[in-house]
Each structure stands twice: as structure tokens, then as C-alpha cells.
């Protein structure tokens, strides 16, 4: 089931353009949007959330144009940022009351459960919260109105591994329901390795690669060839990066490549290594 779809999404700035982004988010999946700083991740999310006016293209949420959603339909979408956006004088209970007033499907039981599970203190004001606490509050707020899609924009980027691990568990539980999905933008690739089902790489405003995580783990690799090695198109080389003494090749079929070139060593392709190949290498 497709939850969100962008078709030829564009945003033009004087020095940067988001170039025909076609993205499909399916139910029961966590999709990672990966790219270096300034690649276009936040601009893409900004266009989906309406905080950035798109220059062209279409965004469909459950097959309906996102700009035409009724307030109740819009509630099925949630966005979490890297910090809470509520006034610092707010307490957790104030956020609960705000959520109740804003969302028709605000679930107080869920909110209370999450408060307890994430150890969010009731009496303190947000100004007394640590960064991790604020992010956990943001996540609890998003989950408590029971959305079908949660979009996380670098939400966990500045958190310590313990808090991040806690949240990753929460996200995995959430997508156990096949009607729910997460779009997760981050450059902390270790988190994405743990939970992402599909990885979408974005570079200079373009989606350059979209790959299933299982496929990536099983079939993709980084080959370390001699600098004089010139692959043919049939060998499945997607990116090439020249190193001081060698040439790294991102390959999508490591078994096939190994059969053709048994002398070339191949490492596992991690999200980070692919990100580096895309950012610093050249597309074949």
C-alpha cells in the first residue's frame, strides 16, 4: 500500500534546485532519505510538510493531493524535527492539552504510555529538558495522534546512542502495522543500517539511487580495483571513486562481478560507504 508519493517534485532556489524528486513510501516500511548536508533532504521534507512552497510536481498522500487534504486527513501525517517547537514554558501536560485541542484523534492513553515509557517528567518545563528529552517529547507528540506516516527530519542527529536506540525500537514497533510508514532523513547511517527497509540516496537535489536494504546487504559491494581498471557497462558498476593508490567501485551485483574479476577484493557496501561514493565519486 502506497502511503506517500512524490511525482516530479521540484523546488528552485537561485543556487540550488530540487530536481524532479520521485519518491514512493510504502506501508510497513521505513524509508531512509540519505545525503550529505545540503543534498536536498530537508527541502524535500519541507515541500511535503508545506513549510516550503514547491515550484512544481505533485505530492500524493494516500492517493490524494496533499494540498487538498481535509484537516482530519492531514492529521494522519506527522513531522518530527530535531528539537521541540513548543514554548519553553510548556510542561508535558501542556503539550498533552495542546494535542487534545488540535487533533481530533489525539490518543491520551497512548500519550500517557509514551510519557512513561520515555521517562518524560511531568512537572518540569521544557526549558529544563535536555536535548534528548526534547526530542523524545517531539516523537511522543507525533505518535500520540496516531498518524499513518511519520516524517523525521534529522530528528535523532544530535542524540546519544542510548536515546537513539530507544527511539529506533519505538519506530520499528510502529511500522509493524502494515498501514503505517516512516520516512527518516538522517546522516547517522548506523541508525539507518538498523531499521531502514529502503534507502534513497539524494545528491545535489536529485535522487541518484533507491535500493532495498536487503538487496544492498546481499548484493551490493565496494570493489577495490587497480587504478588502471576500466569496467564495462555490463559489470554493474554504479559509481567510481579514484583513491590515491586504487579505484573504488560501487557494484550492484557482487557475485557476478566476483566471477568476472576474482582477483579484485570486494567489501560489504554500507550506507556510509555508498554515501561517500556518491558524494565523492563519479556516476558510471
Amino acid at each position: 500500500m502506497t502511503i506517500l508519493e512524490t511525482k516530479n517534485l521540484r523546488k528552485d532556489y537561485s543556487s540550488f534546485s530540487l530536481d524532479n524528486i520521485n519518491l514512493t513510501i510504502k506501508g510497513g516500511e521505513i524509508t531512509a532519505l540519505v545525503g550529505e548536508n545540503g543534498a536536498g533532504k530537508s527541502t524535500t521534507i519541507g515541500c511535503i510538510s508545506s513549510i516550503t512552497e514547491k515550484s512544481g510536481g505533485t505530492i500524493l498522500f494516500k492517493n490524494k493531493d496533499i494540498s487538498l487534504l481535509t484537516p482530519n486527513e492531514r492529521e494522519r501525517l506527522a513531522f518530527a524535527y530535531d528539537d521541540t517547537s513548543f514554548p519553553l514554558d510548556f510542561t508535558i501536560n501542556d503539550i498533552g492539552k495542546y494535542g487534545k485541542l488540535l487533533f481530533s484523534n489525539w490518543n491520551y492513553d497512548k500519550w500517557n504510555t509514551l510519557k512513561e515509557r520515555l521517562s518524560l517528567p511531568e512537572g518540569k518545563r521544557l526549558r529544563e529538558f535536555s536535548k534528548g528529552m526534547k526530542t523524545k517529547t517531539e516523537i511522543a507528540y507525533c505518535l500520540s495522534h496516531d498518524p499513518d506516516l511519520i516524517i523525521l527530519d534529522e530528528t535523532t542527529a544530535s542524540l546519544d546512542p542510548v536515546v537513539r536506540d530507544e527511539l529506533m525500537d519505538l519506530f520499528q514497533e510502529y511500522v509493524m502495522d502494515e498501514n503505517k510508514a516512516i520516512l527518516f532523513s538522517s546522516h547517522i547511517t548506523s541508525d539507518l543500517e538498523k531499521i531502514a527497509d529502503r534507502i534513497v540516496f539524494i545528491h545535489k537535489g536529485k535522487i541518484v539511487l533507491s535500493v532495498d536494504h536487503n538487496d544492498l546487504e546481499e548484493n551490493w559491494g565496494i570493489a577495490h580495483a587497480d587504478k588502471s581498471f576500466h569496467p564495462t557497462k555490463q559489470e554493474g558498476v554504479r559509481y567510481e571513486r579514484i583513491r590515491p593508490y586504487s579505484k573504488d567501485l560501487l557494484i550492484s551485483d557482487r557475485t557476478g562481478f566476483k566471477e568476472l574479476h576474482p582477483e579484485i577484493s570486494i567489501d560489504d557496501a554500507t550506507i556510509e560507504s555508498i554515501l561517500l561514493m556518491i558524494a565523492k565519486g563519479e556516476e558510471e
Binding site: S49, S67, L69, R74, F79, Y81, L102, F103
Partner: peptide
């Protein structure tokens, strides 16, 4: 940013 993301209104 929060208000627009939540409602788009």
C-alpha cells in the same frame, strides 16, 4: 514550522 506541518492551514 510545527503549526504548518501539523495542519497545513
Amino acid at each position: 514550522r510545527r503549526a504548518i506541518s501539523d495542519s497545513g492551514r
